[in-house]
């Protein structure tokens, strides 16, 4: 899995660059973020939650069963919305950060 950056949505704030535990993202000369090392992504989604612009897409590689869909996240402090999109399919999950998991 890895991350794609939507160049038209990225505002170049650098938050994702700063947060990546593998230091894998960089601000390019055009002021937009680039994923420098797509194969080195752990898939922790730290960057996804950091992005305020929904400019980051999380996807899983074909080698582990990816089919071309992607995930975006909206961090609303106490909750996070995850939106999965593939073609016509669009599913939203809201997870609460404040309540402990039963699982």
């Amino acid at each position: 899995m890895s991350i794609k950056i939507l160049q038209d949505k990225c505002i170049g704030c650098g938050k994702c660059v700063d947060i990546c535990p593998g230091n894998l993202l960089e601000l390019g000369v055009n002021g937009k973020v680039e994923m420098m090392y797509p194969k080195d992504c752990w898939g922790c989604a730290a960057c996804l939650k950091e992005c305020t612009q929904e400019a980051l897409l999380y996807y899983i590689g074909e080698d582990m069963g990816g089919k071309g869909g992607y995930l975006v996240a909206k961090d609303k402090v106490d909750t996070i919305d995850f939106i999965y999109v593939r073609g016509e399919k669009k599913v939203k999950f809201t997870v609460n950060r404040k309540t402990a998991s039963q699982y």
Partner: peptide, 8 residues
């Protein structure tokens, strides 16, 4: 998975 998803 040693190719694309090598860090998964």
């Amino acid at each position: 998975h040693w190719s694309f998803s090598r860090h998964k």
